[in-house]
């Protein structure tokens, strides 16, 4: 089994807000992330797929195909967007790094026919990232 990781970046804005809570409670739990005017990050996404190297091509996955899927499902959908307002998954879900990683997994897992998704690693900042391995 070989693991292959492809990296891409996108920049997006978001805010954290639970509509069932008071403003004070939102501010207490989410701190400055609760500012409803939003703020942004440069996200770095690392997508790891696994598989056996094809005996003919030597590839685990066609990189062009993987890049196209990443561009379509993640970069076009999220780059220079407001996650709360423009990405349907976050209409009723808070776009924390955890939830964005899960949403990206779900988007990619449906589309990847050639290789098996192993891990989605999403950096919000250089000192903060989450890993999601799906539901084993």
């Amino acid at each position: 089994m070989v693991y292959l990781t492809r990296k891409c970046e996108f920049s997006a804005s978001h805010y954290y807000h639970n509509p069932q809570w008071s403003e004070e409670e939102n501010r207490r739990v989410f701190g400055k992330c609760a500012n409803l005017n939003g703020h942004g990050h440069n996200y770095t996404l690392e997508v790891t797929v696994k598989g056996k190297a094809d005996p003919t091509t030597g590839f685990v996955v066609d990189l062009k195909q993987l890049k196209d899927i990443l561009d379509r499902e993640v970069v076009c959908a999220m780059d220079h967007r407001h996650l709360n307002k423009e990405v349907p998954e976050f209409a009723a879900k808070i776009p924390t790094t955890e939830n964005i990683a899960i949403a990206i997994w779900q988007r990619l897992d449906e589309k990847l026919s050639v290789a098996k998704l192993h891990r989605v690693r999403l950096y919000e900042m250089p000192d903060l990232f989450v890993d999601y391995y799906g539901e084993a």
């Binding site: 790094t97 955890e98 990683a101 899960i102 250089p126 000192d127 903060l128 990232f129 989450v130 890993d131 999601y132 391995y133 539901e135």
Partner: peptide, 10 residues
Amino acid sequence: MKVHLTRRYV
């Protein structure tokens, strides 16, 4: 939905 979160300190 189990997620791993990593934070870096120096």
